[in-house]
Simulated scan of single mutants.
Amino acid sequence: MIAAAPTTNRLALVTGGTRGIGEAISIALHNEGYRVLASFQRNHEVAQAFSERTGIPVFKFDASDFEATQQSIHTIEADMGPIDILVNNAGITRDGVMHKMSPQNWHDVIETNLSSCFYTCHAVMTGMRERKFGRIVNISSINGLEGQFGQTNYAAAKAGMCGFTKSLAKESARSGITVNAVAPGYVDTEMVRAIAPEVLQKIIEKIPVGRLAKPEDVARCVNFLVADDADFITGTTLSVNGGQSMA
């Protein structure tokens, strides 16, 4: 059971916030004293178990659907108050080499991983600008910075998130809103643990610190970026990859 944290007036929405990296981010923000809402799209049982274990409320909506996102965020803010912190973590993979990739697999990844950032930010931006405060963190990936075989869709979406972050940061800075990205390397999650052991070992051998990231490594970076006194940090992509990429 996660210890109850003191509440603050800051409400944080974490998309894809009930599993893996998103789960760690939700818990870390909760433990810092923020009011946290974790969204999910598919696995209701996992989301409910997460909520019961942590005390963090969950909300189901499809972040890849513009209208559904607008309506869902309107409902959230009507019930819980304005969203001051937005963490765009929702994401999927549909891997395959490009010349064999279906248009649907391209579209699904771009919509879920990249367009969702536009949809959620579009829904909260007016309120943040009016209140002269906002913290937005987009969870990108090392593969968006370096590319990856069999992931043209995923890499394009994650690279797009970094460009989106820089542009929105420039538009929003004078309104007290910071927009940053975090680009994790390989993280010890269910998805990475499904990689064949011999392949995973080769990946770890290329990481200078000699291990996979823990979800909590990423979560600590998010906590840092959303703090009130992180107001001079915007438009950056913070790499969390154990030295695997130092560009």
Rank of each mutant, 00 (worst) to 15 (best):
Ala3Phe: 10
Ala4Thr: 10
Ala4Ile: 05
Ala5Lys: 02
Pro6Leu: 14
Thr8Asp: 06
Asn9Gly: 15
Leu11Ile: 11
Ala12Tyr: 07
Gly17Asp: 09
Thr18Gly: 09
Gly20Thr: 05
Ser26Thr: 13
Leu29Pro: 12
His30Val: 06
Arg42Asn: 14
His44Tyr: 13
Gln48Asn: 11
Ala49Asp: 13
Ala49Leu: 11
Ala49Pro: 07
Gly55Trp: 05
Ile56Tyr: 15
Pro57Phe: 14
Thr69Pro: 06
Gln70Asn: 12
Ser72Gly: 15
Ala78Asn: 11
Met80Val: 00
Pro82Cys: 04
Gly91Ile: 01
Asp95Ala: 00
Gln104Ser: 12
Asn105Ala: 07
Trp106Thr: 04
Ser116Met: 04
Cys117Gln: 12
Thr120Cys: 15
Phe133Asn: 11
Ile136Gln: 07
Val137Gln: 09
Ile142Val: 03
Gly147Ile: 05
Thr152Gly: 04
Ala157Leu: 01
Ala157Cys: 05
Ala157Trp: 02
Gly160Gln: 01
Thr165Gln: 12
Leu168Cys: 09
Lys170Arg: 15
Ala181Gln: 13
Val182Pro: 11
Pro184Tyr: 08
Glu190Ser: 07
Met191Thr: 03
Leu200Arg: 11
Gln201Ile: 01
Ile207Val: 11
Leu212Met: 00
Asp217Thr: 03
Leu225Met: 13
Gly235Asp: 06
Thr236Asp: 00
Val240Asp: 03
Asn241Ile: 03
Asn241Lys: 01
Gly243Arg: 02
Gln244Val: 07
